[in-house]
Design a protein around this nucleic acid. Structure first.
Lengths: 237, 237
DNA sequence: AAAGCCAATTGACTCAGATCAAATTTGAGT
DNA sequence: ACTCAAATTTGATCTGAGTCAATTGGCTTT
């Protein structure tokens, strides 16, 4: 019966066994709605470094991240970059009022998204206030994170920025994959610098300093958090 | 018939002739809904310097700013402050998911808000998706502003920060009160500094420098924008 | 395994903005 | 108008993070 399955779901996937089913925007839908919803989205893959959408693009789609990490950023005309966030599985991207994306999004490593065309998605929401409510929750959560990040960017030292970043990045990974003191950092030092409002050299020096003080160990593709308590103290939350 | 009016609307006010009727959250309601909505909110006044709500308070109310300016801020344990925004008439405050406000809000000068108790407001929203949609729009607009502010905090120089602030503050006032090159600044220099991630001295020096260069004139309680084009160039948007 | 390449680290030096310290202006109360 | 306190401006100096410039280390390709 494989062919008929393909007819129903061209990507050969079902929302019901989607990895982010519980956490994402679709957690607000019941089984019947989910069946209908399934036809709206299509899974799309991106390789590392590929751009999923750009800042001034007209929004034609919404995206639900299923797998991988994305960097979300804004560029100034002279090339300065500010990363406004990293998107992980369960994050929903593309909401705006101007009709244009107001930031760009690149895949860091391989990424899978569930892509929804704007118009049909908008129509689907229309008579499902639960879904709208869920989207609103996600927006409000992001807003709260954005405000925390403003405090970090405006009022914290380089050491505090780096320590805070490592702890909150770990926190997000814990929520996704469970507890571990080994913290993978798929993004480059430059990405971290542009997220924290620092230069790559300062990030590198701060990592080295943390390692010298026994707070972390720098390992291939990430760090190992040796002394979480000390890191918390440095983050001075 | 004064007494009966008071019976119906204890504050002696009607949403239908509210100053922010068109711009605020209530713009999504029709005349009949508005009549019902009227009973949910009560007008409350605050004097300059009064705190409307604090960062870790349990959220018991939502607020619609009707008049005046508020500073919204977060404090670090050691007293460092980051102002995450200024609220003006039409802004809606109090949405969160944690059940607690995640920032504090003080009145700058006299403020009038329309205050809604959380539970009845939540119930009212329940069967009015268009109100939820409006709230969502406001949240998404704020999120976009928050991201712009992250770029400013993380990647712009003091001169750019101040010029950008003056222009975007003027822009907001223009939207509320119409075009004018006289820009009132009801907030203190310290407030501006804490909004821009600078010290008060740097803000003051930058103002002076802009005045020396003929870009602005510092006047009582604000500035006069003499050379908007040059200010735009300095803001380097 | 040598060469080439890119990311990351390290070092030396600089500078934008912070800090410390007065003046000066503004404003509220008498 | 006069006084005191607070806000703002101005000046002098300092410093955390940036800039510029090599190295080093890891991968990939040959």
């Amino acid at each position: 019966m494989k062919p008929s399955v393909v007819m129903i779901e061209p990507n050969g996937h079902f929302c019901s066994d989607c990895a982010v089913r519980g956490a994402a925007v679709c957690s607000s839908l019941n089984a019947a709605e989910l069946r209908e919803f399934e036809h709206l989205g299509r899974r799309v893959h991106f390789d590392g470094g590929e751009t999923v959408f750009s800042e001034e693009d007209i929004t034609t789609s919404f995206y639900n991240v299923l797998e991988g990490v994305m960097r979300l950023y804004k560029l100034l005309p002279d090339g300065r970059r500010q990363i406004v966030g990293f998107a992980l599985p369960g994050d929903f991207l593309g909401m705006n009022i101007s009709g244009r994306h107001n930031f760009s999004a690149d895949a860091i490593g391989v990424v899978t998204v569930c892509q929804f065309a704007k118009a049909p998605f908008g129509r689907f929401i229309e008579d499902r206030p639960q879904l709208l409510k869920r989207i609103n929750e996600l927006a409000i959560r992001e807003l709260s994170q954005a405000r925390d990040h403003m405090v970090l960017l405006g009022r914290r030292s380089a050491d505090e920025k780096v320590a805070t970043f490592l702890l909150s990045w770990r926190e997000r990974l814990v929520a996704l994959k469970g507890l571990s003191d080994t913290v993978p950092l798929p993004m480059s030092r430059q990405d971290i610098a542009d997220y924290l409002g620092l230069t790559i050299e300062t990030v590198s020096r701060t990592f080295t300093k943390l390692e010298r003080h026994g707070v972390i160990e720098i390992i291939h593709g990430g760090i190992s958090l040796l002394d979480p308590a000390r890191a918390e103290a440095l983050a001075a939350a």
